[in-house]
Deep mutational scan, measured.
Amino acid sequence: IRCIGVSNRDFVEGMSGGTWVDVVLEHGGCVTVMAQDKPTVDIELVTTTVSNMAEVRSYCYEASISDMASDSRCPTQGEAYLDKQSDTQYVCKRTLVDRGWGNGCGLFGKGSLVTCAKFTCSKKMTGKSIQPENLEYRIMLSVHGSQHSGMIVNDTGYETDENRAKVEVTPNSPRAEATLGGFGSLGLDCEPRTGLDFSDLYYLTMNNKHWLVHKEWFHDIPLPWHAGADTGTPHWNNKEALVEFKDAHAKRQTVVVLGSQEGAVHTALAGALEAEMDGAKGKLFSGHLKCRLKMDKLRLKGVSYSLCTAAFTFTKVPAETLHGTVTVEVQYAGTDGPCKIPVQMAVDMQTLTPVGRLITANPVITESTENSKMMLELDPPFGDSYIVIGVGDKKITHHWHRSGSTIGKAFEATVRGAKRMAVLGDTAWDFGSVGGVFNSLGKGIHQIFGAAFKSLFGGMSWFSQILIGTLLVWLGLNTKNGSISLTCLALGGVMIFLSTAVSA
């Protein structure tokens, strides 16, 4: 259960009878995928790494000078000259100064003066180019299975845990398959586009800190620079940016070097996208990844198990997540596992009318040892309800109150669905055939309105939902006002479609 501690969480529900669903994975976010007769899966884009970055340009932001020398000439005696002028490691300046009897010249006039100092770069920052084909995306998957609280967001041991898996995709191999043991396998067909235009970005490294910066900004930095990788004795261009020549006297000129420019660069980098280094690879934390999940090989585990009949206890007080759902960790005293956990939410304890829904599909106890633990997640209705676990006299209950409203949740879900469709863009549509167009249209309606429909009408039977949709269509056909007619027709059509397409 990876997503319960992530604030940016998206719930995606598969269409009834569908074998695939489109998701948008982004750094700092987590996606929970639910479908009829399929286990619930949490998917998170953990890291995006980039390798084989080529150094484009380096800037010196802290330097020192040494070996200063000057040469001067009297008027009419030609130009002052130093051998160091031809050495690229030196920074030199030529000027004219007033000369006369007082400073060793027989004539009054302008004399030539040249001053040089050896330039040494102490600290530099480097910009590297990123090729999209060198990106690698690491995705962690977790099935809502027989897990306890100690396994949440624990990325170790996934090789031997059938509840978890790690997959890596690249532009050259965008397809992967996550093996989930008894739950089958989940196929991923990803489109490795981060949403960032790397043709316009460089990877900047300064003092063990890293950013993504725009090329134009990078090339306009007014500091000494050299092109390409460091060859040991780089040729620094624009050395004068960190060196200041003071007022010249008759035979000498003082040279000083400016202080470190790291603070000024940090100020200019305010708002830039931060990154990290992992050995020789860069780690990015921006952008998104679009994936199509193929769920035809994914299956529920323990459908044929019998119900657990022994007593359950709450190991922890049920807690609310950031998303309005409830996490419950229970301990089973029996030894008759594997068995299914009898769990439901009810409005009252007399009729036990089921409300809400299970995020953890078909929760089971897989071990036959005593005191096995299991964590599950529920989506309670707004208002008061009861969490009921167990059967008969051994069942345990917990009162729950959820604040908020169904309308607010439906609106929030619609906005999130619209954002998801905007990110998917043209990849969500198939114009290759008439059937493809209608299929894409259905998927689009489901992406945007599916979660809201589930919130508003999830407790009704599909037949009642179709009746309401048919009534809206009838009202649309018999209303003389054009805008009201079109609105009723659209709402009725969407409702009829979703009542037959969205899983219960």
Rank of each mutant, 00 (worst) to 15 (best):
1 I>Y: 03
3 C>N: 05
3 C>Q: 06
4 I>V: 15
5 G>F: 05
10 D>N: 07
13 E>V: 10
16 S>F: 02
17 G>Q: 06
18 G>C: 01
19 T>K: 06
19 T>G: 04
20 W>V: 03
25 L>P: 00
28 G>M: 05
30 C>R: 07
32 T>I: 07
35 A>T: 12
38 K>W: 07
41 V>H: 03
42 D>V: 06
44 E>L: 05
47 T>C: 00
48 T>K: 05
52 N>H: 14
53 M>C: 11
57 R>S: 02
60 C>K: 08
61 Y>M: 12
62 E>K: 12
65 I>S: 01
66 S>C: 04
68 M>F: 03
69 A>E: 02
71 D>Q: 09
72 S>H: 08
72 S>D: 07
76 T>H: 03
77 Q>I: 05
77 Q>R: 05
83 D>P: 14
87 D>Q: 09
89 Q>N: 11
90 Y>P: 05
90 Y>E: 10
93 K>N: 09
93 K>T: 12
95 T>G: 05
96 L>Q: 06
98 D>N: 11
98 D>K: 09
99 R>K: 10
101 W>L: 00
103 N>C: 06
103 N>G: 02
105 C>L: 02
106 G>N: 01
107 L>G: 03
110 K>R: 10
114 V>Y: 05
116 C>R: 08
117 A>R: 00
118 K>E: 09
120 T>A: 14
121 C>T: 03
121 C>R: 10
122 S>F: 10
122 S>G: 09
123 K>A: 09
123 K>F: 06
127 G>I: 03
128 K>L: 15
130 I>K: 06
130 I>N: 07
130 I>W: 10
131 Q>G: 06
132 P>K: 01
134 N>H: 07
136 E>Y: 07
138 R>S: 05
140 M>Q: 00
146 S>H: 14
148 H>Y: 15
151 M>S: 14
153 V>R: 08
156 T>W: 07
157 G>T: 08
157 G>P: 14
158 Y>G: 12
159 E>H: 08
161 D>A: 12
162 E>R: 04
164 R>H: 14
166 K>Q: 14
166 K>F: 08
171 P>H: 02
173 S>T: 07
176 A>R: 02
176 A>V: 07
177 E>C: 10
179 T>A: 15
179 T>S: 06
179 T>P: 00
181 G>W: 06
184 G>Q: 09
184 G>M: 12
186 L>Q: 05
187 G>T: 11
188 L>N: 07
188 L>S: 02
191 E>P: 05
194 T>H: 12
195 G>W: 06
195 G>V: 00
199 S>V: 04
200 D>R: 00
204 L>P: 11
204 L>Q: 10
208 N>G: 07
208 N>V: 07
210 H>G: 01
210 H>T: 01
210 H>A: 01
211 W>A: 05
213 V>S: 03
213 V>F: 08
216 E>T: 04
217 W>H: 08
219 H>T: 06
221 I>L: 14
221 I>A: 02
225 W>F: 14
226 H>W: 02
226 H>N: 07
227 A>G: 12
228 G>M: 08
228 G>Q: 05
228 G>H: 10
236 W>R: 11
238 N>P: 02
238 N>E: 06
239 K>D: 06
241 A>D: 05
241 A>V: 09
244 E>I: 14
244 E>G: 04
246 K>S: 09
254 T>Y: 03
257 V>H: 09
261 Q>C: 12
262 E>G: 10
264 A>L: 07
264 A>Y: 09
268 A>T: 13
272 A>H: 11
272 A>C: 12
272 A>I: 08
276 E>D: 14
277 M>P: 04
277 M>F: 13
277 M>I: 15
282 G>L: 07
283 K>A: 12
284 L>S: 01
285 F>D: 09
287 G>Q: 01
289 L>Q: 04
290 K>P: 15
290 K>I: 06
291 C>V: 02
293 L>E: 04
297 K>Q: 09
298 L>Y: 10
300 L>D: 05
300 L>H: 06
301 K>L: 05
302 G>P: 00
311 A>T: 12
314 F>M: 05
316 K>L: 00
321 T>E: 07
322 L>E: 04
324 G>M: 13
325 T>G: 09
325 T>A: 10
326 V>I: 14
327 T>H: 06
332 Y>G: 05
336 D>R: 12
337 G>Y: 12
340 K>P: 02
341 I>A: 08
345 M>F: 14
345 M>G: 03
346 A>R: 11
351 T>P: 00
354 P>N: 14
355 V>W: 09
358 L>Q: 07
361 A>Q: 06
362 N>R: 01
367 E>G: 12
371 N>V: 00
372 S>C: 15
373 K>I: 12
375 M>H: 04
378 L>I: 15
379 D>T: 02
380 P>R: 00
380 P>S: 12
381 P>C: 05
386 Y>T: 14
386 Y>W: 05
388 V>G: 01
389 I>R: 04
389 I>F: 10
397 T>K: 02
399 H>G: 14
400 W>K: 08
401 H>D: 11
404 G>E: 03
408 G>A: 08
408 G>V: 00
408 G>W: 08
409 K>A: 15
410 A>Q: 07
412 E>A: 07
414 T>W: 10
415 V>P: 04
416 R>E: 05
418 A>C: 07
421 M>A: 03
424 L>P: 11
424 L>A: 03
427 T>L: 02
428 A>G: 00
428 A>I: 03
430 D>G: 04
432 G>C: 06
433 S>R: 00
433 S>K: 03
434 V>T: 01
437 V>Y: 03
438 F>A: 07
442 G>K: 10
443 K>C: 03
444 G>D: 12
447 Q>T: 01
451 A>R: 03
454 K>E: 12
456 L>W: 07
457 F>R: 06
460 M>D: 12
465 Q>A: 04
467 L>P: 11
468 I>A: 14
469 G>H: 10
470 T>K: 12
472 L>K: 04
472 L>R: 00
477 L>I: 14
480 K>H: 13
482 G>Q: 09
482 G>L: 14
482 G>T: 04
482 G>W: 12
491 L>Y: 12
495 M>T: 14
495 M>Q: 08
496 I>C: 14
497 F>Y: 14
500 T>Y: 13
502 V>I: 11
502 V>R: 04
